[in-house]
Nucleic acid binder design. Sequence first.
DNA 1: ATGGTAGACCTTCTA
Length: 259
Amino acid sequence: MRLATWNVNSINARLETVLTWFEEEQPDVAALQELKCVDEKFPAEAFERLGYNVAVHGQKTYNGVALLSKTPLEDVQRGLAGEPEDEQSRYIEAVTGGATPVRVGGIYLPNGNPIGTEKFAYKLRWMARLQAHATQLLPLEERLVLMGDYNVIPEPEDADKPEGWLGDALFQPESRAAWRALKNLGLTDAYMQVDGAPGGYTFWDYQAGAWQRNHGIRIDHALLSPQAADKLAGVTIHRDVRDREKPSDHVPVVIELAL
DNA sequence: ATGGTAGACCTTCTA
């Protein structure tokens, strides 16, 4: 079973690019982030034509997440508990996989810039809510994959120029500590298990020639429960996609489970 | 120290 995560930076601006990649790679399950549209404007039919079931948690202009799967999406949940007044669409979860079920959470974690503002406080609150949710899920002892744009650079090795990110919300000690705390519940960073190669970045800014200079960062992650990690067979960062026409600033990450 | 790009959408915000 191949599961993909991809921040597409507007699904409607990116539709051709995304559909082409789906036709080529045929992931069984996918989590998309930054749809930048409401549910009604998500191009569900285009994905259904490729054989996918679709669940969307959209929002006007900003954020928005979706799950796609070749098998039915069951027990779909939208949003994270803990802050009822939160109107940002950043989390969607479902159980899929048919006879070999996997619980999949699609994550678009807040960016949090600039630091020292309510945006950064919101990021940290959101991470605490995600940790609380994972704490609830782990005792179920299911195969669980929490994948998406975490907007956290875990270690200096995850940035081409770490010194350039010292003042950024993505590389703050508090952000990195919250990421570590999440992992320390007993979740496995899929990338670190299979492919420790340096330069495994997933995001290159549109600005200042970041792609041409390989000024990248690794911020799109998949965390696995022990039951999922036991089945982990591979991780691929689809770096070449960044060089195509009208690219997103993020590239797809695919994890393979031996299911 | 700033600017550089992209997308939604209406003028500025988010990233």
